[in-house]
Amino acid sequence: MNQMAALVDPMVPAPFRIERVKKELSDTFTLDLVPAERKRSISFLPGQFNMLYVFGVGEIPISISGDPGVGDKIVHTTRAVGNVTNAMWKMGVGQTIGVRGPFGTAWPVEEAEGSDVVIVTGGIGLAPLRPAIYQILANRQAYGNVCIMYGARTPEDILFRKELEKWRGQFDMQVDVTVDHATGRWGGKVGVVTKLIGRGGFDPHHTVAFVCGPEVMMRYAVDTLVERGVSEKDIHVSLERNMKCGIGFCGHCQLGGDFVCKDGPVFPFDAVADRFVIQEL
């Protein structure tokens, strides 16, 4: 830890100014945040999260959805589903948000070099994976086949649609999208995201998989990946629990012997497989 980092108290939020607000979907938005007080470089690893504080309302954990190669701002994408995110939804450019972080473990993007990479995600689960996709694309030649499999509720709920289309058009990765519900106007696939795994162009014995989405989806996705021959140790999942302090002190996010905020949110599946089947956790 360098001297500057040692001086930063992880429990004290730093003020960040909203530089840009982008409405992604009817209930989902992206905030670009820049330091409010002085210009400083921002670094994080794909998969990590920040605690975002709307002053006077509350603080919540939100994954970082921006490009780790861009060091002057931090990007978060979230849905307006509760008090804090609804308050955020109403905020505008120039307003201030408190930021603590980044916290937690990362997707093993560098460790996956030399392997095929399969990204299975659904709904807003694409947001915490987008930094990993950016990092892979920045060093594309280091990987084998790269497959993104994305599921959404309806065609109108497809997150980062333009980017998915762009990635699909780059000819160096397989991007497959499916929705659960659609009308005849939709010309794409209809069905669960796990169905895409069976058709993915990857070598299961030389594949690292990143899975992020609702936990039910992740359970079935992991089952399908294992059925195809991907080893549990090569499957990584991002878990969500009630993170509060972000540094493993308060215990709110305890999952068996781990704290999701500190030991996660990204876990190798074989490290948490036994807990996936315990309903009380």
């Binding site: 659904g122 709904g123 599921g151 709920d157 659960d180 669960v192 989806m217």
Partner: peptide, 16 residues
Amino acid sequence: AHARLQMIDLYGIGKE
């Protein structure tokens, strides 16, 4: 199994 997963609104509103 797939139809059941499609029925449960997997990506529906979560919680904060």
